[in-house]
Amino acid sequence: MTAGDGQPQIVVDALVKRFGEFAALDGVSFTVGRGEIMGFLGPNGAGKSTLIRILCGLLRPTAGRVLVGGMDVAKNPETVRQRIGYMSQKFSLYGDLSVVENLRFFGGIYGVPSGEMEERLRFAVDMAGLGGREDALVATLAGGWKQRLALGAAILHRPLTLFLDEPTSGVDPASRRRFWDLIHTLSEDGVSILVSTHYMDEAEYCRRIALINHGRLIALGTPRELKQHSLGGELLSVEGERIGDAMVQVQKSPGVKDVAMFGSILHALVDQAQLRVPEIEALLVARGVAGARVRRIEPSLEDSFVHLVGTQFASGETSP
């Protein structure tokens, strides 16, 4: 436990989920504290959606336990569902109903008391910034509005835990920014939030990040921790003309552990920056790369991500 007070809000313990032979989740454990924002990062098919669906009780675990608010999801799915909010990857409100009709419907089936309903609808409409468009059909709303409305619908019943499965995919940057402000506000109110994403910049907004690949948790920590410790070396940026052609040479150069392409720049992971910068520079000059420039840089989350995922591939993880 690195965050929160008292009991963790979410406990995932040795979770395994198999679909036939395929292990979508293979022994995942972590906890999320009260009011904590936990980010889930991983390539497509890594098991992020499966994990969130198990936490919501939509799928049953093959082995292991999942507790939300101290309660076993597999044993008390209905009680747990009363206390959680969920936004699936796909937009899932009714396009042919209006904003208020959608909210009233979801409030109704979540059991929001009729005395509180109007106030909660007002709250959700204001939060989504949809004041004045209450009667617009949802199908006519733009992406950012739809997504904030979906968030509003997911918290009508004041859940203590929120699961968001790639909530910002396909939404413009300004709307994404605004969406994250809402998430932070909820977190300050004590709502625990588990959010999956594949935007690196969004991961930086999370208190902690879990990196998941091939159904396994391969790193867990604050963005800062991940950036500093996960690489196991220092990072160099290598620039120059037609640098892609030189990639193989850089890879073979002594002390270089890993090379990855970022646009037109190479990122090379080396044991000691001080020693390797002149070596690589000399190599490139010898190869006739014009404008070669090598310098030490601070690693980004993306570097950790690529490094860790690449490592897993290289070490011969063969699961499909």
């Binding site: 919501c56 009780g57 939509l58 209905e78 009680t79 569902r81 009363q82 959680i84 969920y86 699936s88 796909k90 937009f91 899932s92 409100l93 009714y94 396009g95 979801f106 089936i109 979540y110 059991g111 619908a153």
Partner: peptide
Amino acid sequence: EVGTLEQILVTPIR
């Protein structure tokens, strides 16, 4: 198909 069923399934509805 549209995805609304999944949203309904996570509610406490029986």
